[in-house]
Design a protein around this nucleic acid. Structure first.
Lengths: 126, 126
DNA sequence: TAAGCTGTATGATACGATATAATACAAACA
DNA sequence: TGTTTGTATTATATCGTATCATACAGCTTA
């Protein structure tokens, strides 16, 4: 379902968060669709259940999913609609990153610009 | 010279690296121009000299600067030329990030796409 | 009702990265 | 000669991440 990079400096729970978010945005996960169980996903990914739970908890806080004790976790309806805009943005971003890389831009600088720009006017989302 | 976010999850030495890199790309630092001393920058930023040295060392490995013992650290000539392309890319990226943010894209997803795309064909730079 | 699943919570532990502190040394320079 | 430079080393502290083990309450189903 998701593919992790265990060697990456980016925390596993962050990768899970981003992965789930992406699946939602791409429409792979629809509204009210059930996500893998905390334990199930943990086993599938080969990580600790607590790690998955941390990701799920933050996804809930961010409003992407909602949990039902004894049932499972589900995708929030209003988040599920896969806007065309989103795919377009992802494609634009990929294209831009490739251009930047070709121009010799270091990845760290790209990340820095993304972070700075995103946080220009206070925080939002995760 | 640089402004750090000590609360950020991004390591200080990474922020220094990205900051110096940016100054080089923007043309603020020209070829063969001397950088602040390891100790001087450390004091200015209020961090440990070892932290600055770690950043400088990685910048040297990446080919952005070169050191001379007893003299100081300097900007590599071939890196100094501030291509118009670079400013354009930065501006494009900023614009795209603002668009993504407005569309509700979480920052972590943007970062993920940047990372994935950048590393598509093996590594380069830092 | 009983069993098994769910999310949730907690405490202990381990590990690595980061950052600091305190030195030390060789090279360059005034 | 004395100061400044980059560089290196060792020790220490801290924090985030992740694991392991365990437990509890709510839901579902047999």
């Amino acid at each position: 379902m998701l593919n992790l990079d265990l060697q990456s400096r980016i925390p596993i729970f962050e990768q899970i968060k981003a992965g789930i978010t992406r699946l939602i945005y791409l429409g792979v996960l629809s509204g009210d669709e059930q996500l893998p169980t905390v334990r199930a996903l943990a086993e599938e990914l080969g990580v600790n259940p607590n790690t998955v739970q941390k990701a799920y908890q933050q996804l809930e806080t961010a409003g992407f999913i909602y949990p039902i004790v004894g049932r499972g976790s589900f995708v929030r309806c209003n988040m599920a609609a896969p806007h065309d805009q989103h795919e377009q943005i992802q494609e634009d971003l990929r294209s831009l990153v490739r251009r930047a890389k070709a121009a010799g831009f270091p990845e760290s600088l790209l990340t820095m610009v993304v972070r700075e720009t995103y946080q220009e006017r206070g925080e939002q989302h995760d």
